[in-house]
């Protein structure tokens, strides 16, 4: 009498979970993986729109060799890094500061919170349009009020390389500070109040409480916010495309906008793909470094 119960070969319900994740996998494959693979593939060919892909000549690593020596690529990369540095530094500082200010349930805090996140709800294309007109040299409100209130002469905001760079940095801060704010305030409100109280009893003042207790405890949230903004910097192009088109010169041309211009203005699809591969490599590299330095998935928040 062998009473060892046998595992059934096939359980009818075993397929069910796969059926549920199937749509997500199909969308991921078609919408995400396929374009990325195609970008890699295209970067080895010299292809123009209108010509059959099969007829495109294979150019091996020519595009990559050209890219390394291309001063334009280095220039837009430098613009992107400067843009990322200023926007992310200021957005993180401002967002965290605002979150710390509005964390306490003071009167009207909920109204302020709602107002602060409004820019986040505006589509980037519309943001570009709004600020293009606000910064407009002749009819823009900014020049008008600078003149009325401070007596400052009208500036050609979007026509001067440095002013244009300032304008896109300013616009990005206007739109994305709320994003940091909303993530950080959610993190602060989820902090266990007893830990904060314990630090009060331990004698921490307001400043020490923020820098030695609160911010370290929401570190993983800060890292995720930073990561998402960094990826956005390498990805975003709508606002620049509409406000300045990357100009004057290449002073506001971010890497992704440069790829767009190469691909669709100058029809260099293969070369644009090669630069895309560089972009993927950079984003992947930065993400890996940040995640190894501070892995938000690793630090369980059991307190």
């Amino acid at each position: 009498m062998s009473e060892i119960s046998q595992k059934p070969r096939f359980e009818p319900g075993a397929f069910t979970p796969y059926a549920f994740i199937m749509p997500a996998i199909v969308v991921m494959m078609g919408g995400l993986l396929y374009p990325v693979v195609m970008a890699f593939y295209l970067s080895f060919y010299d292809w123009e729109i209108g010509r059959k892909l099969a007829d495109a000549p294979f150019v091996s690593f020519d595009h990559f060799v050209r890219m390394v020596a291309d001063p334009q690529v280095w220039e837009v990369l430098w613009v992107t890094i400067r843009f990322g540095f200023w926007t992310i530094t200021i957005e993180m500082t401002l967002g965290v500061a605002l979150a710390l200010l509005l964390e306490k349930p003071i009167r009207g805090a909920s109204i302020f919170r709602t107002i602060f996140i409004l820019p986040l709800m505006v589509s980037p294309v519309v943001v570009g349009l709004i600020w293009r007109y606000l910064f407009d040299a002749r009819i823009g409100w900014i020049n008008y009020y600078l003149g009325v209130w401070f007596g400052i002469e009208p500036q050609v905001w979007l026509g001067d390389p440095q002013l244009a760079f300032f304008a896109i940095v300013f616009t990005d801060i206007w739109q994305w500070t709320p994003f940091i704010f909303i993530i950080v305030i959610a993190g602060l409100q989820a902090l266990p109040s007893e830990v904060v109280e314990a630090s009060t009893i331990d004698g921490a003042n307001w400043y020490q409480q923020i820098f030695l207790v609160k911010l370290p405890m929401i570190k993983s949230i800060l890292v995720i916010a930073l990561l998402m903004r960094l990826i956005d910097v390498f990805r975003g192009l709508e606002v620049m495309l509409i406000m300045t088109g990357g100009g004057p010169g290449r002073s506001t041309e971010l890497l992704s906008l440069h790829i767009y211009n190469r691909a669709f203005d100058t029809q260099q699809l293969g070369y644009a793909s090669a630069i895309s591969v560089l972009l993927i490599a950079i984003v992947f590299g930065i993400s890996t470094v940040i995640l190894t330095m501070a892995n938000p998935m690793k630090s369980k928040s059991d307190v």
Partner: peptide, 14 residues
């Protein structure tokens, strides 16, 4: 001049 122990321990996780 007091010290306090909380129900949730309230240790600093970091």
């Amino acid at each position: 001049d007091i010290a306090m122990v909380f129900q949730s321990y309230a240790l600093y996780p970091h």
